[in-house]
Simulated scan of single mutants.
Amino acid sequence: MKPLPRATLLCAALLALAACSSNRVDPSQYSGFLKDYSRLKPAESISGAPVMRWVDPGLDASQYRQVFIEPSQFYPKPQPTAVISEQTLQAITRYFNEALRRELGSVLTLVQAPGPGTIVVRPAITAVSTHTEGLKPYEVIPIALVAAAVNTAAGGRDQATDVAVEAAFLDGGNQKVLAQVVRKGSGKDLENDTQQLTLDDVKPVLDGWASDMRRSFVALRDKQH
């Protein structure tokens, strides 16, 4: 078999590296859900995941004892597909609500309406998508590249799953924005482009987001004591 040109291999390697670093949301992918993106800066979540984030430098977390969690929503409203059904989309928002209530409710008192001493959590899932998985580093060799191309053409290649969220945290008394975050996560890979996405495929992502919100609040509160 004739070796592939070195430039082709280099391009494939770069694509593979790009795929590995794609878990930070690019500004071109912002949904418009948040009112102001200009203050967001690259950062790491408390679990080490890449995020875009802003926290009011004057925030005193210790003054907040309660949390009001607005129902999570999709923004913009998604269109179901053959792979991502309306039932799955509804299940995702319901489960994210439960995860947020479980995690934040363990360190703050859940309330039914905003007010003084209350943090308002305003979350939106801004993307749920599947796409053909990028080449893995070990595939950046001539024989594997050919095999991967054939598999992709036949629709048999793994499908990567991406989920993105944007969230604002407000003071329940005066509606001042206290913090904002934009982040993306990867769910379980689907076997091919016809396998349907289920809630179980993205549950770990949703659980991780909710856990990070709780851990970040606790860390900030403890640091200020």
Rank of each mutant, 00 (worst) to 15 (best):
R94K: 09
V165K: 02
M213N: 07
S22W: 14
A7W: 04
N151G: 03
E191P: 00
E166A: 08
P123N: 12
L89R: 11
A124H: 07
Q224D: 01
S28G: 06
P204D: 10
V25P: 03
S21R: 13
V121F: 05
Y75N: 14
G156Q: 06
A167I: 15
R221G: 00
T88S: 09
Q112V: 10
T130P: 04
A154R: 14
Q159H: 05
S129F: 07
A149N: 09
N192Q: 07
G155R: 02
V218L: 09
R221I: 00
P123C: 11
V111P: 01
Q79T: 14
S211M: 14
Q195N: 03
S45M: 02
N174M: 05
Q195D: 09
L145T: 02
Y95T: 03
I92L: 08
P114R: 05
W209L: 06
L14P: 04
V205C: 13
I119E: 05
A179P: 04
F68Y: 15
A82Q: 11
A144G: 00
T132G: 11
V205N: 07
D222Q: 10
K184C: 00
A113H: 10
P116W: 08
A49S: 12
P78M: 03
Q63A: 15
A160W: 07
N23Q: 10
S62A: 15
P42S: 09
L199G: 10
L40F: 05
D158C: 04
R53D: 10
L34N: 02
L17N: 04
L34R: 02
R39E: 12
K136W: 06
P142V: 07
L9S: 04
A13D: 03
G155H: 03
N151D: 15
D60S: 13
A12K: 05
T130H: 09
Q66I: 01
G117Y: 08
E70T: 11
R94H: 12
K2S: 03
P123K: 08
K188N: 11
Q73F: 04
S129E: 13
F217W: 07
L100Q: 04
L190C: 05
S129T: 11
D56G: 11
E133I: 05
A147R: 13
I69A: 08
D193Q: 08
F96D: 00
S28V: 14
A210E: 00
P137S: 01
E86I: 07
Q66S: 11
D193A: 06
G208W: 10
I141M: 03
V177M: 06
T8G: 00
Y138M: 09
K223V: 00
V150K: 15
I141P: 00
A12Y: 05
D207H: 12
V165M: 15
T161G: 01
R215S: 10
Q63P: 01
R6A: 13
T126K: 04
L145I: 10
A160N: 08
G58W: 09
V55N: 06
D201G: 06
A13N: 05
K223T: 01
V163G: 12
A124C: 12
R101I: 03
D200V: 12
Q224F: 00
L14F: 15
N97G: 00
C11W: 15
G185K: 06
R215L: 10
D207Y: 13
V111L: 01
M52I: 00
L40R: 12
A19N: 14
S211G: 00
P137A: 02
V202P: 09
Q180W: 01
R183E: 14
